[in-house]
Simulated scan of single mutants.
Amino acid sequence: MAAGNMKQIRRRIKSVQSTMQITKAMELVASSKVRRAKERVERSRPYFDTLYDTITRIAAANRDGSSVYTKPREVKKSLYLVIAGDRGLAGGYNANIFKLATAQMAGKDTAVITIGKKAQEHYAKHAGSVLADYPGIAETMRISDTHSIVRQFLDLFKRGEVDEVFLCYTKYVSPLTQEPRCIQLLPLSFGKEETDTKQSRVLTEYDPSPEAVFNEIIPEYLNGVLYGAVVESYASEQSARRMAMEAASDNAGEMIENLNLSYNRARQASITQEITEIVAGAGQVGS
């Protein structure tokens, strides 16, 4: 019986060791991708900050609310852009963003544009209107790749087919922290205090008008926001995967230690049983 247990334990140890090799390799790959993704995040943030500073300054000069991008309207249909990963094995990364998006969509008539294979798979299983899917673009994303996506939801918004647009993504805070977020893209809203600060800082004349300049720069602003969100989400995905694979490797190591202990105990029990049988047999022969 002990010999059978020992064989099972040896097979289990080999299986766990094979799994541990895979998780270690995935951890190393994710660590390498995290470094590159973090560099992309750091390069994209100044671009977004400059765009945001410019757009709020122009908004301060355009207070009449005449722009189609800022004018509030009755909300009948909402559009959500949901950014998730292209692969699994990333801990709660995908589940967290889906949970947030579901909470935000509750009670609304919604349509969805998915970015990432996991988002595509998730919303294909749920009732609702999926307008477009963009899987496998996050790793090689460029600012020009956002143009078709932004143009699509801008056209829908301007035609009145959707009345508000939201973006759900995961913000990269640190290698250990990622925060799912949902922000409103359209209609744009800037706080009065913020626009007052921009207006008091500099007095600028816009030709032909602040509204015209504002309407021209909004698509570029949205391109920058979407690109930044995809880059942040990709860095978050790789960080979450690295942490998940590190935890899996640590758990596999602990499991191997426990299995080795069980194997040694079974081996000791087998030896003890053999000694007991030999002693018992010798006693019977001697009698």
Rank of each mutant, 00 (worst) to 15 (best):
L186N: 09
R151M: 09
S200N: 14
Q184S: 07
M245H: 10
T102E: 10
H122S: 05
V150Q: 01
D163V: 03
I143H: 02
L100S: 03
V75M: 00
Q104W: 05
G88P: 00
I115E: 03
Y134T: 04
R40G: 06
N94S: 02
K118L: 10
P208R: 06
E216L: 09
A127D: 12
D196E: 12
M105L: 00
G88D: 00
D109S: 13
N62A: 08
Y169A: 01
T272A: 13
K14A: 14
S148H: 09
N264K: 07
D207K: 15
E161W: 06
E237W: 13
I55Y: 03
P135F: 11
C168V: 11
D86C: 03
A127Y: 13
V173Q: 12
Q268Y: 10
Y227T: 04
T140I: 14
I13Y: 01
D133F: 14
S67T: 05
S18M: 11
G136T: 09
Q284N: 14
E74C: 07
K198N: 11
M6W: 05
E277N: 09
T54F: 09
S209Q: 04
S174Q: 04
L259Y: 05
E274Y: 09
K99P: 05
L261Q: 15
P219E: 13
K117I: 12
L81I: 13
I113T: 06
Q120Y: 07
S209W: 01
T197H: 14
I143L: 13
S32P: 08
H122D: 04
S44C: 02
Y93L: 10
A240C: 06
Q268L: 10
I256N: 03
A106S: 05
L79E: 07
N251H: 13
R242D: 01
Y52P: 08
S67C: 06
L28R: 15
P135L: 09
V75T: 03
A282L: 14
K33T: 09
V29H: 11
Q273S: 15
C182M: 02
F48C: 05
N260E: 10
S15A: 13
R267P: 03
S200I: 07
S262P: 04
D155R: 11
N223L: 04
S174D: 06
S67I: 02
E216K: 12
K14P: 04
I58M: 00
R63F: 05
A269M: 09
M245L: 02
R35N: 10
N264C: 08
A280R: 15
L156T: 02
V41E: 07
R151Y: 05
D49M: 10
I97H: 11
A106F: 06
N251S: 14
V34K: 03
N264S: 12
R265T: 14
T50E: 15
